[in-house]
């Protein structure tokens, strides 16, 4: 019996040793979670969103648990591109991770400027463009809801880098496939779907929102069916590699995403609960392939039967 081929290709430019990725905003810049995980064994790590200048983030409360999920309104708190390069990049290089930088911005110029600065670092294997953060006033979801804005950002970022460009799509739209189509037309190598869903929660005694920002991004197991449907919708309508994200908490969930059309998948909220989840899910997916006589994991992508 031949060995299981666990590599996945995300477009023509990016090959990962396996389909397990760690989602932006759920593993910081890798240093904390590396106490639990060998980052060199993970398909790829996507950094916390990096912006041109440091961002302080939103005031507390930033997080609250909801049934089977959580709301967050962190507000893209991050060290900024300069400090990322001087303080965070050396570690990610040392641990031999496959690194994707997630970029957040409040203008098209800020996106391109940030990508330009980071492009020369060999360890950075691609960029995930965050056009869908629901928790900042400037930029974020304003872009993610607007087809022309997503088109413009993709086009401009495409010009400044040869590296893979992944557009992280918002689920807070009525037709996500249109967004994936525009991203493909303007030169994106892949899309990742989905970012968080806008949600809120109230304290019934104080009658105040449970998070200071009033609304936050819903993540965790609660959103998995929505995320799967979005991935499936893109997969059926647009020929572009999809990275599936949304509530994956066990290996069965990951397989589901691949069947629905994802070439790879990202783990998010589950990293907070079980920082070793990536390793456990990787093992589970491997066993599934062995037990079901699957020789190439990539064969699972879009293998649904209707």
């Amino acid at each position: 019996m031949s060995e299981l081929d666990f590599t996945v290709k995300i477009g023509n430019k990016l090959t990962l040793k396996n389909p397990v990725m760690l989602a932006s905003g759920t593993v910081g810049y890798g240093n904390e979670i590396s106490e639990f995980l060998d980052l060199s064994e993970i398909g790829a790590i996507v950094t916390k969103s990096i912006s041109l200048k440091p961002r302080k983030g939103n005031p507390p409360q930033r997080v609250v648990e909801t049934t089977g999920g959580m709301l967050n309104a962190i507000g893209l708190a991050n060290v900024g591109v300069e400090k990322f390069i001087s303080e965070k990049l050396p570690f990610l290089e040392k641990v031999n991770s496959t690194l994707i930088c997630n970029i957040a911005a409040s203008s098209v110029e800020e996106y391109t400027e940030c990508v330009k600065i980071l492009d020369k670092y060999k360890i950075i294997k691609g960029f995930e463009i965050n056009v869908s953060c629901p928790n900042v006033k400037d930029g974020g979801l304003i872009f993610g809801n607007n087809l022309e804005a997503v088109a413009g950002i993709t086009e401009k970022v495409r010009v400044v880098t040869e590296k893979p460009v992944i557009i992280k799509l918002s689920p807070n739209v009525s037709n996500i496939a249109e967004f994936a189509k525009v991203a493909k037309e303007r030169g994106a190598d892949a899309v990742s779907a989905i970012n968080t869903l806008v949600g809120t929660a109230f304290d019934i005694y104080t009658r105040r929102p449970k998070i200071k920002n009033i609304t936050g991004g819903l993540s965790g197991p609660a959103i998995k069916p929505v995320a799967l449907a979005k991935v499936f919708e893109i997969s059926r309508n647009v020929d572009i590699p999809i990275i599936g994200i949304g509530g994956i908490s066990k290996w069965e969930d990951a397989i589901e995403f691949m069947i629905a059309g994802a070439s790879a998948f990202q783990l998010g909220t589950i990293n907070f609960v079980n920082p070793k989840a990536a390793k456990e899910i990787l093992e589970g997916v491997k066993n599934y392939c062995l037990q079901n006589n699957i020789k190439e994991i990539s064969g699972l992508t879009g293998s649904y039967e209707l």
């Binding site: 904390e32 409360q61 930033r62």
Partner: peptide, 22 residues
């Protein structure tokens, strides 16, 4: 409130008294 407890979720800020940061 916090999600992870070890610095990756950034969910538990408290403002510094001396600098404009959390």
């Amino acid at each position: 409130n916090m999600a992870c407890g070890f610095g990756i979720c950034q969910g538990c800020p408290v403002h510094s008294a001396s600098e404009d940061k959390y």
